[in-house]
Design a protein around this nucleic acid. Structure first.
Lengths: 138, 138
DNA sequence: TTCACTGCAAATGCTTTGCAGCGCC
DNA sequence: GGCGCTGCAAAGCATTTGCAGTGAA
């Protein structure tokens, strides 16, 4: 067995930059998105290194990993500080943040009922916002 | 809604073969896997065509689509025309179908409260199934 | 006959990997 | 000073797309 996950990990500026970025973004991001965000901040980390760092952090359980609709791996810093979902307009892209305690507990109890552990979930609602509905768009 | 999804669709032997294969396999398969299975049955369908047919069937709502742990699209024949969600094991890929009337109505009322119309939603729950939890996987 | 569908192969885009040099311990 | 980490660029894979021939309606 591998008793300790205490994998030796050096503290480099790239690793710190990735950690800081994840800290700031309170949502799931793909590696590609994180890479762009780092460059916007003027931090230079190669794409390959971004992939390596995120995978390494995921291995150590420092970040949550799941897949977005396009099948890309998306990461989020592990402290589930303010979890929320989105209501998205299919036509204009407008997004409304929504809190859903009922859904949270439903997801948790459903998973538990099936014996699942370490549960995460994604919920997205798509539709037409009031403006686009009135405009008769599809 | 858009009255008729009646997209014109020709009945070819390739499309029938894919449909029959999905009928026989009562589980999620990736396009690559389906392609191999078809060849084992002696049916010759090109890989590109397999991709095209599965995507087309998904567009028409004839099959369920989601992503496996590797991020590949996986399909399954949509036996139940009814809407449902999935509880997925992050480690072994096992999928459990779940019905959630409460979530359906919550999504509908939340959207309505914000003035959204023509609402759809996606809900996926990820975790570790009982076996993988016991095996101490991450 | 017509035009969607198919097969082939090249192209695309995300992710991984080999190698040489740099920097943390 | 040693060894892991980084950057660059090429490789690897799944998936998509252009084009011409084939077959369903």
């Amino acid at each position: 067995m591998d008793g300790g996950p205490a994998r030796e990990q050096r503290v480099t500026k790239q690793r710190l930059a990735v950690g800081a970025a994840l800290e700031k973004i309170d949502d799931f991001v793909s590696t590609q998105e994180l890479y762009r965000l780092l460059h916007n901040d003027g931090v230079s980390v190669s794409l390959a290194t971004s992939y390596r760092i995120l995978q390494s952090m995921a291995d150590d359980g420092l970040v949550d990993v799941l897949r977005n609709a396009e099948g890309e791996a998306v990461y989020r810093r592990c402290s589930v500080a303010s979890h929320h979902h989105h209501l998205l307009c299919r036509s204009c892209g407008k997004a409304v943040e929504i809190q859903a305690p009922a859904v949270e507990s439903w997801a948790a109890s459903t998973a538990q009922a099936h014996g699942f552990t370490q549960v995460q979930h994604t919920v997205e609602i798509y539709g037409l916002c009031p403006e686009c509905s009135a405009a008769g768009r599809t």
